[in-house]
Every structure is written in C-alpha cells, then in structure tokens.
Design a protein around this nucleic acid. Structure first.
Lengths: 244, 244
DNA sequence: CGGCCATTTGACACCTGTCAATGTCTGTGG
DNA sequence: CCACAGACATTGACAGGTGTCAAATGGCCG
C-alpha cells in the first residue's frame, strides 16, 4: 500500500486524520530513541517523576493493578501504535504497573520533545489527544463490560475490540489476528478465573463464533460474535468532532 | 474554620495546594453563571459540541452508560466541588449520560473562560488537572473493584471512597455522611442487583461495620471497614488527608 | 529425559441473580 | 381524613453462573 515504511503510530493516526509531510516527519522524529524490554520483566513506571513516555512499535504490553491478596486486574493492553505512560506525562500518573507480554520494542519520548512537537504541529497534538481519549473510552467500556455483561459477552466484546484496534495498525482484520495472550491474561482482564475463561472459550468455539488457539484468534462468525457482544465500535472511531 | 464562604471546589483544591489570593479570585470568578437542574431529568451532555463544563456546587450527579438491554452501568458520581464534563472540554467527551440525583446547583464554565483562567494562573491549571487525573484514577480503581472484589468488599470500598471525597469538601468525616443514593444507584454502580445490594447492606450493618439508612451513611467501625475493603486511599492522592 | 508452563476437564460449592411477595413512606386526589 | 398509587426497601425461595479444587494432558526447553 505505502511505499514508505511507516510506524504503527503513524498508521493509526493517519486513519484518523490526513497528516502533512511535515507532520509525518515530526512524528517519525519522535521515534529516535529506540529501546527494548524483555517479556515478563515488569517495567516499573510508577508515579515517580516519569519524564518520558513510550511509543510501542512492536510487541504487546498490559497495564494492571495488583491487590494485596495477590490477584490483579488488567486495566488495558497496549499494542503497536499505542502510547505507554502518555497520561503520566500530560497529567499525573496513576499507579499502574506495566508488563511486557512479549519482548517489545518501543521509542522513548522525552516530555520536552513531545511538548515541542505539539507546539510545532497543533494538528499532531490533536491527533495524539484523540488517541488518549480513545484509551480512556476503552477503560470506561471495559468497566461497563465487567459490570453488566456475562462472561460470554464479555469475552466476545473484548476480542472484537482487540481485533478492531489491531486492524487499525494492519495487524488483523475480520478474520482474526495473532494474539500472544494466555488465558490467564484474559482472566485478569475480564474479572474471571482462568478456569472459567477456558470454559467460555470452548463454548464460543463450539458455537462456531471464535477460536482462540495457538496464539491466534480466528473469527469464525464475525456477525454472530458482534450480535452476542452487542458490540458497537462507535466508542473506538471517534472520527470527527475534534478536528472539525 | 474559614471566615469567608468558599465554594466546594475551592475547598477541594486548597487541600491539594495552597492557592494565592489572586488564584482564589480567578477561581471564584469561574462560578459566575449559576444554573440549576432538576433531579432525575437527564442532562444531555453528549459528544456534540460541548462548549462548556460545569462546576458542581450543590447536589449529586451520576454519569453512566446505558446498554441496549436496558441495564446501565454508573461510571462515576460527582459531588460538590467536582467538575462535570471537564474532559469533554479538554479532550473529547466519551458518550456518557449525566443524571442529577437530586436538584443540583452548578456553575457553567465556558471553555474560553477556563482556558483564560489557565493562562492567568498556571498553578490553578495544575490543580484542576490534578482533579481530573484523580477522577480517572477513581474509574480505574472502580474497575479493579468490580473485577476483583466480592460484593461486600466492593460496597465497603465504595462507601469509604465516597466518604473520603466528601470529607474533602467538608461534607462528612470518619463517622459518616449524608447520602441521597438509592440502593438502585448502588446496584448500577457496583455491578450488582438491587436485591443483592440490600443483602450486602444488611450484612455490613449486622456486622457492625456501616449503616446505610434514611439517606445517611454511618461508619460504625471505620477501621473494620477499611480492613474488609483493603481500602488504601493512596489513589485519591489527597496530599493533606482530612481524614487523619 | 525431567521440569515447567499453559491448557483442559470434571466435581462440587457458593456467591449472586431472578422471581415474587410484603412492608413502609410519601404525595396526590377524592 | 382516607384511599390509592408509586417508589424504595426488605425478605424468602430457588436457579444458575462462576469460583475453587484437583487431576490429567501436552508442548517447550534445558
């Protein structure tokens, strides 16, 4: 499609607004300090003086909160093209922990560089704020899901949301996507036990809706899944108002 | 305590940072356009071109999301001193609905006035952003609660959080607070059925922990409640805890 | 080969939802 | 003043969704 190799973040934002050459250049320049993190090693990213955010370019990360009894609740996932710790730069960080799910590659962005980029290209700032507000909308939708959907619908909704997000960066479509998550990750995300996650997955598979297996999610009946989850992606594509 | 009558928002922010006379004046000036809303009449506040936010000075509001099957999930409550729709001004609004729980009084703040106030007094901007990030931390904590706490702990945690928030604006303390919520509100907040909310409240009452009755919450055993809920107010970031 | 991790499955308990009925209080209208 | 309706709170009986416990299976890697 594109002759030039763009970063996932560029792809994502481009789906939201057409960026000029200058804006694209500024965006790419933010990707200079490349860093890698090893799977499962917690990236401490507490409320301290976090002077940098990260743009995830490869691999998956989850942000979670751990309770005193040992259980944890995963609040969100970050996939390529997503920011890590953006809010801790713009506002103040809440005390999440971040854990790479696989080995990841990310670009470290210093606060001053980010703010400078914002000053140079207001439209870029707008686009990035759009991404941040989308993240927040996802947390809210997540809350609704855990509070008011049963396990099947919750799982279906989550997989559909993930599929939509990945499609935006070219890593999946309506047939499915590669997915490095374990059933424990799903359990900690959806507020279920790992055992029940397995039961739910089996049922969805046997009903011909979706198959979660060997690191790959296959949408066997996309329409049926959407119906089961009452999935309305409106909260994801907030195309419009901000840039008008 | 104070000879001058300050707004709840002023009280709240003052607990976070000592504001100068100038900053206090700017803050009070934001309260000029007073409006009232009637209980139970939904304040439509969709993603449209929301050019204003509100500072709640009296009464309670809840923000919620309704599902197609009719159930709803309350995402957050706003009590005096809280902003309504702040994020929809700074970023973009997610599609919540707002419902006054009782008759409320609020100050309408136009975006331009707010931005102007920010420009005049950066410290005020910081304080307000702190409030916004606290709201977000509460949503996350709420997610953790629904996902990983049982009904008793969830209820206890919620009541303690509410108590802390109200204490910040002088509307409650370690003994309790006035509370206009119905058990249906609690159910929609905690992801429970109204019937079960009633059972949980009875149990907490019979265990001598907390009494929810006749529009008033009484902490019968604050310490016991904290222990049951494993309540750690760190996420509220109330630097100068009034509850000490 | 021998651990370790993730997955899978079954049995059972229990937390929570649903259904239904009753009680209480408030406001309204006769 | 009383009858009545409506909203909220309360309680019991019952069903069902999920969690917990335990064990077996299979893949991966040192």
């Amino acid at each position: 499609m594109t002759s030039v190799e763009h970063s996932p973040l560029t792809r994502k934002l481009s789906a939201f607004v057409a960026l000029s050459q200058v804006e694209l250049a500024v965006l790419e320049r933010l990707h200079q300090r490349r860093r890698t993190f090893v799977a499962r090693r917690e990236m401490v990213h507490q409320g301290q003086s976090a002077q940098a955010a990260y743009i995830l370019s490869g691999g998956w990360v989850c942000s979670y909160k751990r309770q005193t009894d040992g259980t944890r609740q995963i609040v969100d996932f970050q996939v390529p093209g997503d920011f890590l710790g953006l809010r801790s730069v713009l506002l103040r960080t809440s005390d999440h922990s971040f854990e790479p799910i696989v080995d990841i590659e990310a670009a470290e962005v210093m606060t001053r560089d980010l703010l400078e980029a914002f000053a140079l290209t207001p439209r870029l700032a707008t686009a990035i704020l759009w991404a941040a507000s989308r993240d927040e909308a996802m947390v809210v939708e997540h809350l609704v899901g855990i509070g008011r959907r049963d396990a099947d619908a919750r799982m279906a909704h989550f997989l559909l949301e993930l599929g939509s997000r990945l499609a935006l960066v070219g890593m999946g479509g309506k047939d499915g996507f590669d997915c490095p998550l374990t059933q424990y990750h799903l359990a900690d995300t959806l507020g279920l036990s790992a055992v029940h996650v397995n039961r739910v997955l089996r049922q969805l598979r046997e009903n011909g809706l979706v198959t979660f297996r060997d690191g790959h999610v296959t949408f066997d009946d996309y329409g049926g899944l959407v119906k089961l989850a009452e999935f309305d992606p409106a909260y994801l594509d907030q195309t419009g108002p901000l840039l008008k």
